[in-house]
Deep mutational scan, measured.
Amino acid sequence: EVTIKANLIFANGSTQTAEFKGTFEKATSEAYAYADTLKKDNGEYTVDVADKGYTLNIKFAG
């Protein structure tokens, strides 16, 4: 089991951190699915992958 950390960075400057656990593939998939649910209210997003994929910096356009 691994932990994927998602740093969520919103257009208004606020930030939030979420963690997803499971296999690497499952946790990564859940992180992207979570970002997709936030897209409606926060706009499109870009992802900067860090720490060999264990950290995702997800920035929303607003």
Score class of each variant (00 low, 15 high):
Y34D: 01
A6S: 07
D41C: 03
L38S: 02
Y32H: 13
F20R: 01
N12A: 06
I9T: 07
N12F: 09
T28N: 06
A35L: 11
T55V: 10
V47S: 05
A50L: 14
T15P: 05
S14F: 11
K39L: 11
G43I: 02
T15S: 09
V49M: 08
N12P: 05
F60I: 01
Y54A: 05
D36L: 07
L56C: 02
A11N: 09
E25I: 10
G62L: 14
I58K: 00
K26I: 15
A61D: 08
G22T: 02
Y34M: 11
T37V: 13
S29H: 13
A6G: 12
A6V: 14
T3E: 15
K52Y: 13
A50T: 06
G62R: 07
K26E: 12
A35M: 13
N57K: 07
K52N: 09
I4R: 01
D51Q: 06
K21E: 09
L38Q: 05
N7R: 09
E44H: 14
T37H: 07
A11E: 14
A61S: 05
N7D: 05
A27N: 01
E1D: 12
Y34A: 08
E25H: 12
F60A: 00
A31K: 00
N12M: 06
E19W: 10
A11K: 07
F24D: 02
K39T: 14
V47K: 02
T3A: 10
K5M: 11
A27E: 01
N7K: 11
L56F: 04
A61P: 15
L56A: 01
E25M: 13
E19M: 08
D51I: 02
D41E: 15
E30L: 07
V49E: 07
T17E: 10
E19T: 11
S29T: 12
E19A: 12
L38M: 15
F20W: 05
Y54D: 04
I9M: 08
A61I: 12
A50D: 10
Y34G: 01
G43E: 06
G43N: 04
N12H: 03
A18T: 05
K39E: 12
G22C: 02
G13A: 04
A50Y: 05
S29L: 15
S29V: 07
N42Y: 10
E30T: 13
F24E: 07
E1S: 12
N42W: 13
G43M: 13
L56M: 07
N42K: 09
A6P: 00
L56Y: 10
T23R: 13
K26V: 08
N42T: 05
N42A: 08
T46M: 15
N42H: 15
D41T: 12
K40G: 08
K5I: 10
N57W: 08
A6W: 02
K21D: 06
E30A: 14
I58F: 11
Y34Q: 03
V47Q: 02
Y45G: 01
A18G: 10
A61T: 13
E44M: 06
D48S: 15
K40V: 09
T28C: 04
G62P: 12
A27V: 06
K59V: 14
E1G: 15
E25N: 05
A50W: 11
K52S: 10
T17R: 09
A35W: 02
G22M: 02
E1F: 09
L8I: 15
Q16A: 12
N57Q: 12
T3C: 05
E25L: 05
T55P: 01
I4G: 00
K39Y: 08
V49C: 04
K52H: 09
F24G: 04
F20I: 03
F24Y: 10
T46P: 00
E1K: 04
S14R: 14
Y34T: 05
T28F: 12
T23S: 15
N42G: 09
A31D: 00
A33T: 09
D36Q: 07
N42R: 14
E25W: 06
Y34R: 06
S29Y: 15
I9R: 10
T55N: 07
I58E: 00
S14W: 13
T28L: 15
E30Y: 03
E30I: 07
G62N: 09
T28P: 02
F24H: 11
A18S: 11
Y45L: 02
A35E: 00
K52P: 04
G43R: 02
L56H: 03
G53D: 03
A61Q: 15
T17W: 13
T23A: 09
L8M: 09
E25F: 04
N42D: 09
